[in-house]
């Protein structure tokens, strides 16, 4: 039977929602144990959060000053030691910037290949994943005699409930592993807002080049706020400097699966569509009736976003 270890993704002392989705993916693999590992400077509180995730058997936290910020070269040898010592058959992390940076290094140290962006579990060693910007799905079979290393596509799994209570233990590695000093954290510039998190929001409103300017983007933000949505953008809007890059939705940005996705002034390049294909309902507003976004949209409206947004806002205000 499989023994699964999920590596927790956390930020500023809080477990990310992506971790609960990775656990959801892990739960679909038949297993005898599903544990979570937290690497942090002081991981007790984060481990406490992880212990509430339904389906988790045991949480361990490995506290070292070097783990204050996730650095792949420093964390990977510790994860490998935990995997080897715990005899895990599967080691998973969410396909976030953390998981994408970390897990290939873990796989290389274990001497195994890896599955990126696992989107469906077919069996303990059979998985599906998207390729070519989500335009194809492949089924991959992995050898049962080697450790399976994978990142889990967060848009494909609903987060598990946080109503359980697993055991939590602080952990020491059996041997004091020497950690490299060649990589150092300098700083972070984070564009935190009070708005819902783009990756996990139930509603997302996004804008593209058609918005026209950074100042005009306020109309997108205001509308998003009025319906409690997160704000996203196309690569064109990011490259034009309207918004920071962490708002980018698409193959090379965030891949999201909100219940409702409303986009304004986005033409719908395949790289953008790759990021929204799993959304529940896609609404597109664009001045160009031939924009490719209308091929994927569930509801399309041709028109000027600067006229439609105010009308939409007042109509929604009236109906709610």
């Amino acid at each position: 039977m499989s023994r699964i270890l999920v590596i927790a993704d956390h930020f500023e002392g809080t477990l990310t929602a992506a971790t609960a989705k990775a656990v959801a993916g892990a739960r679909e693999i038949a297993h005898e144990a599903l544990d979570v590992l937290v690497l942090a400077a002081d991981g007790a509180a984060i481990a406490g959060e992880a212990a509430r995730l339904a389906g988790v058997d045991r949480v361990t936290h490995l506290d070292r000053a070097e783990n204050a910020h996730p650095i792949a070269a420093i964390a990977a040898p510790q994860i490998v030691a935990a995997v080897t010592q715990g005899h895990y058959s599967h080691v998973l992390a969410p396909n976030t910037s953390f998981g994408k940076d970390m897990m290939p290094r873990v796989a290389a140290l274990l001497g195994v290949e890896m599955v990126t962006d696992l989107s469906a579990v077919l069996d303990t060693h059979r998985f599906q994943r998207p390729i070519y910007a989500g335009n194809a799905l492949t089924t991959v079979e992995t050898p049962p005699d080697e450790t399976l290393v994978a990142t889990v596509r967060t848009a494909s799994f609903k987060p598990v409930a946080a109503d359980a209570q697993a055991d939590v233990a602080a952990r020491q590695l059996d041997d004091d592993i020497e950690l490299p000093t060649h990589s150092r954290f300098v700083g972070i510039e984070n564009h935190a807002t009070d708005r819902p998190d783009l990756a996990t929001a139930k509603r997302v409103v996004s804008g593209g080049r058609g918005v026209g300017s950074a100042a005009n983007f306020d109309i997108i933000r205001e509308f998003a706020d009025s319906i409690g949505a997160a704000v996203g953008a196309s690569r064109a809007a990011v490259d034009a400097g309207y918004v920071p890059n962490d708002m980018q939705v698409g193959q090379t940005g965030k891949i999201i699966a909100p219940e409702l996705y409303i986009c304004f002034g986005i033409s719908g390049a395949i790289q953008h569509l790759a990021g929204i294909k799993d959304a529940g309902t896609i609404v597109a507003v664009n001045a160009d009736p031939d924009a490719p976004i209308f091929e994927i949209a569930d509801i399309g409206l041709v028109g000027d976003l600067f006229e439609i947004i105010p009308a939409l806002q007042s109509a929604l205000g009236a109906s709610s």
Partner: peptide, 17 residues
């Protein structure tokens, strides 16, 4: 180690309006 068993198109989204 890994073997690709098959490659298929993703499920199409139902036609919009």
């Amino acid at each position: 180690g890994h073997r690709v068993v098959d490659t298929t198109p993703p499920a199409p989204r139902p036609a919009g309006e």
